[in-house]
Nucleic acid binder design. Structure first.
Length: 189
DNA sequence: TATGAGATCAACT
DNA sequence: GTTGATCTCATAC
């Protein structure tokens, strides 16, 4: 997918990433859950300015920002908007379709539903580490394909944060069984 | 089903 | 010294 795709508001990008297919070395599947983080958002890593950790967020769109979560897991973001706007979309879950055997081995788990249902799980299944921090999405080992069919998208509050908890900036494929957590069916938060 | 602790590290105060 | 954009396992109900 071209860089133009990411040079838009985080929310448009987040919305369009649902149903888009993401592979790392041919392993992955359609994205079913993401969260948007904007630099004006107190919950974003880029809130409060550039630091060593979040430097990639301040760079050009279409690159990946990888960080260590709770000292144990990795989480991936796709940088959006314009260079310096420091906005990104956190990839939280996908539907495992390609490389099932590899993902099961990496996760030490057979339950398909739990292979990529959560940012830390997804990174373990796709073998994403800080080695990829700052890497461009339009080059190997990454493959990103726009969705080809319309999907029903749900929105709700983000998970695991303590600031700006009410902003409905978590987006997902409504009804998917591969979400890290279901969305409320009534559309309310 | 629900809640709680532990893992483990680097950024940031 | 404190705090997470988390996950797993154990224990309780």
């Amino acid at each position: 997918m071209a860089q133009d795709f990411f040079a838009r508001s985080v929310h448009e990008v987040a919305w369009d990433l649902i149903g888009a297919t993401f592979f790392v070395d041919g392993v992955g599947g359609p994205i079913v859950e993401v969260e948007a983080y904007h630099h004006t958002d107190p919950a974003a890593h880029s809130y409060g300015g550039q630091t060593a950790r979040n430097a990639v967020m301040f760079g050009p769109p279409g690159h990946v920002y990888v960080y260590r979560s709770y000292g144990v897991h990795w989480c991936v973001n796709f940088v959006c908007e314009a260079e310096g706007s420091a906005s990104a979309v956190l990839i939280r879950a996908l539907m495992p379709t390609e490389g099932l055997a590899v993902m099961r081995r990496r996760r030490g788990l057979s339950d398909e539903r739990l292979l990529c249902a959560g940012p830390g799980r997804l990174c373990e299944a796709l073998a994403i580490t800080s080695a990829y921090n700052g890497a461009p999405l339009d080059k190997a080992p990454f493959t990103l394909l726009a969705r080809t069919a319309p999907v029903e998208i749900a929105a709700g509050p983000r998970i695991g944060i303590s600031k700006a908890v009410d902003l409905p900036w978590r987006y997902g494929w409504a009804g998917s069984r591969f979400l890290s957590k279901p969305f409320r069916a009534d559309g309310k938060f």
